[in-house]
């Protein structure tokens, strides 16, 4: 009886390592939701996520009200420089004017910025706190989601490692 108790303690203990402060995306391994949203700064243009089918791409959810988005901005600029994959921005629950000013002042790492004023697309993606960054593969499946500030280490470890080896534009 004693040993059962002890074993129970240990069992639960050993498994306790994963850091649970961050939620795992419910969409992993599933098709990314499609969306069709206006483009920031270009009132006549819209962006459809299906335009990116056939190659991997990365979506970064951000807002000018989000302190940590500011923190990761340099990293995003560096990633954009690498030009490995298209970097799409999803401007979440924000004001167009503020967003435009922000990108002007700090630089624009995104190939295109989709504007999600009502938050519906973000909810479809299961976003709960900006910044979040998603990796979607060539067949449109969500491969990874990172919550929080993106760092070069995380980019390499979680995103680049999941991209196919064969040469990409």
């Amino acid at each position: 009886m004693v040993f059962i108790a002890l074993a129970a303690v240990l069992f639960v203990g050993v498994r306790r390592s994963p850091d649970k402060s961050v939620m795992v995306s419910a969409l992993l391994g599933k098709p990314a939701p499609t969306f069709h949203l206006p483009v920031l700064g270009e009132p006549t243009r819209t962006f459809d996520s299906r335009e990116l089918a056939g190659k991997p791409w990365v979506m970064n959810v951000w807002g000018t009200w989000c302190v940590e988005c500011r923190d990761e901005h340099e990293v995003l600029l560096a990633i954009a420089q690498q030009n490995r994959v298209p970097l799409v921005g999803l401007n979440w629950n924000d004001q167009d004017e503020d967003a435009l000013v922000w990108l002007e002042r700090l630089g624009n790492p995104y190939s295109v910025v989709a504007v999600d004023r009502e938050g519906r697309t973000a909810i479809d993606f299961g976003v709960y706190g900006a910044p979040e960054t998603f990796l979607i593969d060539a067949s449109g499946i969500v491969q990874y989601r990172h919550v929080g500030v993106l760092t070069p280490e995380i980019w390499e470890r979680e995103f680049l490692s999941r991209l196919p080896r064969t040469g990409l534009p």
Binding site: L6, V9, L10, G13, R16, S17, D19, K20, S21
Partner: peptide, 29 residues
């Protein structure tokens, strides 16, 4: 230890979690 999310949680840090866990195991074991 950041293992559970709660209104009360202090800053999460896995290394702290492991330490307390080890301590728990020793004392209880």
């Amino acid at each position: 230890s950041g293992v559970l999310v709660s209104v009360h949680s202090f800053a999460a840090d896995p290394s702290r979690g492991m330490f307390i866990l080890a301590f728990l195991v020793i004392m209880i074991g």
